[in-house]
Amino acid sequence: MRVTESTIAANFLANLNRSRARIVQLQSQLATGKRVLKPSDDPLATGTILRLNDAISRNEQFEKNVTDAQAMIETTGSSLDGFSNILLEVKEILVRVRNGAVADGLGIYADRIDQLLDEAVNIANTKFNGKYIFGGTNTLQQPFTLAPDRSAVTANPNGITGSIEYQVAEGLRQVVNIDGQEAFNGTQIFTALIQLRDQLQNGQIPSPADADQIDAMMEYVNNKGGKAGSIQTNLRSLEVRLLDQRLELTGLLSIHQDADFAEGALKLKHEESMLDAALAIGARLIPTSLLDFLK
């Protein structure tokens, strides 16, 4: 093959350009720490990266939802504990009254039960984050109202039922409330307290059946507290799982997206020496000509 000066020059330039293009690519990968900066760097990996970014954001959202759910159900659980403590005190009063309290003194106990009724209604109207947690889905309206003459407790006529679900994982929803109907069996407990108060005020000693009823109610509320507790346990294990998932997803993203520094630096070093070699060879070959040797 006949080789001319222009062939040498063109080949030299083409090789130099290719070498420089590779160096620029490596440089931007190393500078940003990312292997995939635009879809054409690796179309398949780009698809995966987009899906992983979405999955990571969703996972973060689920973590946020679980935190919110935990706060909500914790408040529910402690409220139910408080409610159960009220019933415990009512039970103690009944025991004391039935163990030979004087009929004249019954009024004091009636007053105490009346106070406890207030507390119970307050607990049933607990507000968390601006929402009535026992209102079912009617979270903005007070679920239970004590009549001004203190003769009855009525439930919100628009309803105190409805479960609230949060999405806590991919395809998984968790009920995060116990509505008023379920938590306190409607207004039954309040009605029972009002009856007891009235009996004591009228000097009547409550019957053993009344004591049993309070026992049953306490057990009912404790059960609901247990339900809140099990939801909390559930959420705690979900929290751990979501954290694991986030770490796993982030790791995967890094595998697809991030540049390997050691490898990149080595490649860059290699390309640099290639460039040096190309330049050195060009510098030697191009100026050489027969002209140098003619007098």
Binding site: M1, R2, V3, T4, E5, S6, T7, A10, N11, L291
Partner: peptide, 12 residues
Amino acid sequence: ENQRSSVSGVSL
């Protein structure tokens, strides 16, 4: 282009 140059190119 190298092939073409080997036929048509000027070698100084």
